[in-house]
Design a binder for these strands. Structure first.
Lengths: 346, 346
DNA sequence: TTGAAAGCGATACCAC
DNA sequence: GTGGTATCGCTTTCAA
């Protein structure tokens, strides 16, 4: 049975070999640059490759070689600026180290995310970077014994999961200090419960703790995901109007926007009537013109150190598990001002 | 030679078969749900799968089945909000249609992007979505005869490339009308040359044309990528200070931020002294609190229609090539106001 | 230097 | 219902 180059579908190495008048083996050698071959052979193969528009089948290649030179990245929410920024940094670093990054995401539910992770595993990526505060550590850890894994961007301390993240506690305290320093005596803290949002819980808890330690009254506002942002915002507006708070602290910049809009629409000025803080400080919300007062995560470092750590673990799986907490920096914008005299608007 | 389950590496179907005491074939049948098998067999296999933590090798599977149930997405810049938003929409839609989305990006250069695209092809994804204004159409078209391809988010009219995008021309005109309607008589338009930024060129050209048609003087400002944003912004500041313009139109919201910051720092108020417009209107910059006046792209529709179109082409490659231009909507923010009297600041 | 042949892990068609 | 076997496209010995 001779090889008939099918008109449909991608050309295979056999097609290239036939076209170049050499064997599969020769083509393989030339393409990988390993082994010996004559200039003559090389030229013929290269020509055939171009003429046929041949692109090697990564599946077949990976199947035999056992390596894919690919890092799989699981992202929680493709629309989250934070993960997006991480993605960009990691792509660059991975590329520098000779790896390609492929990304998958769930579409919200834990179950989807698990299957997205499994998809990466099924592709036999050489390593896994998990960027999601949603998937429980145990479910990630399940794969860790067989594939090098690093969790990035969430304060993960699971004993078998290496991780790199922003020091949420320290960050929460720092930004709380900004509010306390401005003289506020009562602040709303939008709190997120621990389940399904490890990251955000850690920071808001730290904010509240710090405020109290500094003698600032904390009014907790339930900001769990299941609650509509508008409803959370309305609660903050009411508190501000009633003069019960002069500041509001949000778990993310995103939520901060959700709060600022209704405040503005209610005629409350920021920061004259209410001071507001965020968390993340990620492009494009780090623009001085927008002027958010927030805690900026060290995205650049988190991303590149996560990749470095991962590649190290790919090369040597026996490396000890490491947890790295990196410090963020306060971004001083225009949304925090000195304490206003409550209830004296107008 | 009997099968020895290697302690390292992922377990294979053979390991599962051995563990369950059945044949590879039986395992395959159970896992794919095709063919016939007894309840007994199913239970044994399912148990073995769980015990071993088996995840099927997608490469081996794809190699024989010829399909991967995967759509490859090439994104220009992982840090771009627009592509990010598209990504989220597409992920959801693809998932609904039974496809998984994997994403790759270049790291800036055309060459990288080509290789990122080739990586997708090498993975033998069933279809390709190209979201990048960088890669020349010809380089994309090269793969199109062999893999279903759709270009999303850029006004591509290449005869062999299906596409879905925002009607940049109409959008540019609409937003220009906002400026003209506000009474401005002279406006800076930040122009981007055509090469490597098809999208942005199209819209700025449309803005300028429309302004002129409405009797507004256009002062072109060179905003090509190679130029530092600060330098572009400085030019706008100078023009505004000199009273030569009362409005500035930017090709993207991102650039708009780059311009607004220096304007603010120069003591010029927006929109009192200068009106500014953007383009894209993508989360999170669509927040009313930020208040950008911009043209909002119909991201939701672009993304889901692109996936629909792609899947249709996967199923029937002979479908005629289609180009869909979708209309955006003006987002009326607070960055455009009535024409200020030039040079009368203070 | 080159080509033939043996798998990699899964599917699918085949008799049994 | 079940298990053997050819096969997908490629890399990798191993002879020639």
């Amino acid at each position: 049975m001779h090889t008939t180059p099918r008109s449909a579908g991608q050309p295979t190495i056999v097609d290239v070999a036939a076209r170049a008048g050499v064997s599969k083996s020769a083509v393989s050698r030339v393409l990988s640059g390993t082994g010996r071959y004559s200039d003559e052979t090389r030229l013929r193969v290269e020509a055939a490759v171009v003429e046929l528009g041949y692109v090697a089948n990564a599946m077949a290649r990976g199947l035999v070689s056992g390596r894919t030179q690919t890092i799989g990245m699981l992202v929680r929410d493709a629309s989250s600026m934070l993960y997006t920024a991480l993605h960009a940094v990691m792509e660059r670093r991975a590329s520098d180290l000779g790896y390609r990054l492929v990304t998958t995401t769930g579409v919200g539910r834990v179950e989807d995310e698990r299957s997205a992770l499994a998809a990466l595993v099924s592709m036999r990526v050489d390593g896994l970077v998990v960027c999601s505060g949603l998937l429980p550590a145990d479910q990630i850890a399940e794969f860790a014994p067989r594939i090098a894994t690093v969790v990035a961007g969430r304060p993960e301390r699971h004993p078998s999961l290496a991780s790199v993240f922003c020091d949420e506690v320290e960050g929460g305290e720092r930004i709380a200090d900004v509010v306390a320093d401005a003289g506020h005596r009562a602040a709303a803290v939008l709190e997120v419960p621990e389940d399904f949002a490890i990251t955000q819980h850690a920071r808001t808890a730290a904010m509240a703790r710090r405020l109290r330690a500094r003698g600032v009254e904390v009014i907790p506002v339930d900001a769990r995901f299941s609650r509509a942002p508008a409803s959370v915002a309305a609660e903050v507006v009411d508190l501000a109007r009633a003069g019960r708070i002069t500041a509001a602290m949000c778990p993310t910049d995103r939520m901060m926007l959700d709060v600022c809009t209704p405040l503005m629409q209610a005629g409350l000025r920021i920061p004259d009537d209410v001071s507001v803080t965020g968390f993340d400080g990620v492009f494009p919300l780090d623009s001085p013109w927008i002027g958010l007062t927030t805690l900026q995560q060290p995205i650049e470092r988190i991303g590149s150190e996560a990749i470095d750590l991962l590649v190290a673990r790919i090369d040597d799986p026996s490396l000890p598990v490491e947890h790295r907490a990196l410090r963020g920096t306060v971004l001083h914008g225009r949304t925090v001002g000195p304490r206003a005299v409550p209830a004296s608007r107008g």
